[in-house]
Amino acid sequence: MNWDIIASYGDLYFEGALTTLKVCFLAIIFSTILGFFISLMRLSGSRILQGIAFTYVWVFRGIPLMLVLFWLYYAPPFHLMLPAFVAGVAAMSINSASFKSEIIRAGLMSVNKGQIEAAEAIGMNPFQMMFKVRLPQAIRLVIPPYINNCVIMIKESAQVSIITVADLMMAAQKAYNSTYSIAETLGVAGAVYLTLTSSVMLLQFVTEKKLRMSKN
């Protein structure tokens, strides 16, 4: 083991980790918002909106993330020339929103009907009901599968290196290509990924504890 290699590539790793963090953070936010609206469309009364949402989930859940990355970076629609970082975040958001919309839909549907009726009976309008009762209850139900999905996203983000985003995976590859010390270069990258995913899991632990609905 030669740990000097890591010391000399430290900055590269740091920049890479920061990029991975940024890509994941933005993609998680955008995919959550997009997924929420898709789940609302799917649950709406309008057949057109339902159809759009169903098709979206069907297509983007069914094709590989890497394909969407290539499509947005090398053959973007309307000749948009997207920077690699933007294409990476967009592709990951689009891909993950299809999964998240299903997770959120399951959560919204499993909220007890009586909870919603109580909100209706007291005079809340549909928006108040959604934000005061339905969403807060659904959040408690979806935390485990949602965090699961976020962990998978962080790991999948390694694929953005293929479209030249200088993320953690690319830093590890560069270090490996110039040193051929595979154990050290990939080992450190693995440790950093594990740190990122662990912090998300810790977040799950904290939120579940904070959102429990009983003193006992």
Partner: peptide, 26 residues
């Protein structure tokens, strides 16, 4: 959707107590 927005005038004046309480658990 429109009716659900409008009917709040009536529902806020008519209270309801359910068989299964339906207190908001959160």
């Amino acid at each position: 959707f429109r009716s659900r927005m409008q009917l709040t005038w009536m529902r806020s004046q008519v209270g309801m107590v359910f068989q299964h309480f339906n207190l908001w658990t959160h």
